[in-house]
């Protein structure tokens, strides 16, 4: 946002609170993702259940942010960067809500995996997970710092994520080709690594929203960022 305050401080307060809530939903979504993965790797069913319960909070906050954004638009009629800030916050919130949904899906599959015996190959999801998590963290940072540079960094991380996703999937499908005891677990892991990749895509969307907010440039679907 701008250094100069609005003539109406109420308008400033509303924008500040919108930003605060968007960061809050980001923190929750990230926590849910981390808990889902810890639940899986530490074989902690309680933690998986917590993810499913905490997603409620994310849904509530999403509705609140939508509502607050509508209020800001109706009441203060924002223009230019203020308008982009409100629209972007709504879109970012939506992306974060979906990230949390993916965390729930991961948690549900993890509960199933935990019921079966432990396998070593779980560790193959880790490169993809760490990459996706980092993309999410940096995209949230780029929003809270209004930083186009950080947002661009997120975009540059997507190639590696796809690579890690492919490697893990390949490993698991290979195992599935031969008769094995853990085929259900491998299948669930294929799903999980797929959701992890989706988290990275959503983090990319967030980064694109931040770039739009900062520069009014739409770089989705192949658009290039101009100076």
């Amino acid at each position: 946002m701008d250094t100069k305050g609005h003539i109406l401080t109420e308008f400033d307060d509303a924008l500040t609170s919108l930003k605060k809530n968007t960061i809050a939903i980001g923190t929750l979504a990230q926590k849910n993702l981390e808990n889902a993965l810890s639940g899986l790797t530490q074989r902690d069913t309680a933690l998986c259940n917590q993810v499913i319960a905490d997603d409620e909070e994310v849904d509530q906050l999403e509705m609140q942010i939508d509502n607050d954004s509508l209020q800001v638009m109706a009441k203060f009629r924002p223009f230019a960067s203020d308008l982009r800030m409100v629209i972007s916050s709504m879109k970012i919130t939506h992306n974060l809500e979906r990230i949390s949904d993916h965390a729930v899906s991961i948690a549900k599959r993890s509960r199933k995996i935990i019921k079966n015996s432990e396998i070593d190959e779980i560790s193959y999801i880790e490169p993809a997970y760490h990459q996706a998590l980092k993309m999410l963290q940096i995209s949230l940072q780029s929003y809270s710092d209004s930083s186009t540079e950080l947002a661009l960094e997120v975009l540059s991380m997507d190639t590696d994520l796809s690579k890690f996703h492919k490697q893990a999937t390949k490993t698991y499908t290979k195992r599935l080709e031969e008769p094995c005891d853990h085929y259900k677990t491998y299948l669930n892991l294929v799903f999980i690594v797929r959701w992890i990749e989706r988290v990275g895509d959503l983090a990319t969307n967030i980064a694109e929203d931040v770039i739009f907010m900062q520069s009014a440039q739409d770089i989705r679907h192949g658009g290039d960022l101009e100076d």
Partner: peptide, 18 residues
């Protein structure tokens, strides 16, 4: 002008800033 003005003064004015 209203979505992405080039000048900061314009943006400040249309956004109701000091």
């Amino acid at each position: 002008i209203f979505q992405n003005p080039a000048q900061k003064q314009t943006e400040d004015y249309i956004s109701g800033r000091f």
